[in-house]
Amino acid sequence: MNASVLDCLVRGYEHLIPAVTLPDENDRHVVAAAIHCHADAIVTFNLKDFPQNELSRYNLEAIHPDEFIRSVFDLNDAAVVIAAQRCHKKLRNPPKTAEEYLDTLLRQSLPKTASALKPYSEVL
Rank of each mutant, 00 (worst) to 15 (best):
D66M: 04
S115R: 14
L55W: 04
Y58F: 13
E122F: 15
H29I: 04
I42S: 02
I17G: 00
S115M: 13
A32G: 01
S121A: 15
F50L: 06
K118D: 15
R92E: 08
L60P: 09
Q52P: 03
E61M: 13
I63L: 13
A78N: 12
I17V: 14
A41R: 07
P111K: 11
V72I: 14
D49C: 04
A83G: 07
A39C: 13
K96P: 00
R11E: 11
H29P: 00
P65L: 05
R70C: 12
A34R: 07
T97W: 03
P119A: 13
N93G: 05
V10D: 05
A32E: 02
Q85S: 00
P119C: 12
R57K: 15
L105D: 05
L110D: 09
N26K: 12
A32N: 00
E122V: 13
F45K: 08
A79K: 09
D103E: 12
T113I: 11
D74E: 15
P51C: 05
D103H: 08
A34L: 09
N76A: 10
K96V: 09
L117H: 13
A34D: 09
F45N: 09
T97H: 06
Y101E: 03
V31T: 06
L55F: 06
K112F: 14
K89L: 15
K48L: 10
A98C: 02
A114I: 10
P65T: 05
